[in-house]
Amino acid sequence: MGSRSGDRVPLADLVLLRQVRDRIDREYAQPLDVEALARGVHMSAGHLSRLFRRAYGESPYSYLMTRRIERAMALLRRGDRSVTDVCFEVGCSSLGTFSTRFTELVGVPPSVYRKEAAAATVGMPACVAKQVTRPVRNREARRAACP
């Protein structure tokens, strides 16, 4: 650390990180964890987490959970599934972790979101609905920056 190259991640490693990130996008609903992701690119979990954070500004675990919450939001908006069903459907194995993370990212617990959001995007073009309903990671960052 603190090397002269400014701690830049080598290009070859960035390519591996991109493959990890794409895999999260593709397989987030499966029981993925950081160890499995790291094995896929022959890195240790700790090394992967450090490099990923340097490249993308957040840990692979955080990115994975954000993808799951994003999908969960879409499923909850449909209103035909319970919070528990949605939790497992997006790849989370713990309802507690899911609810905590959901609340951190979205601002309300999943049960409240389910009740309130069902009608929120009615009449909105699909592309707009996707944009405006995406979890905003900066919301967290801002809160962390000024508690």
Binding site: V9, A12, L14, V15, R18, R21, D22, A55, Y56
Partner: peptide, 8 residues
Amino acid sequence: VAEMMAKG
């Protein structure tokens, strides 16, 4: 630019 391309 090279880094952004590599990381996708």
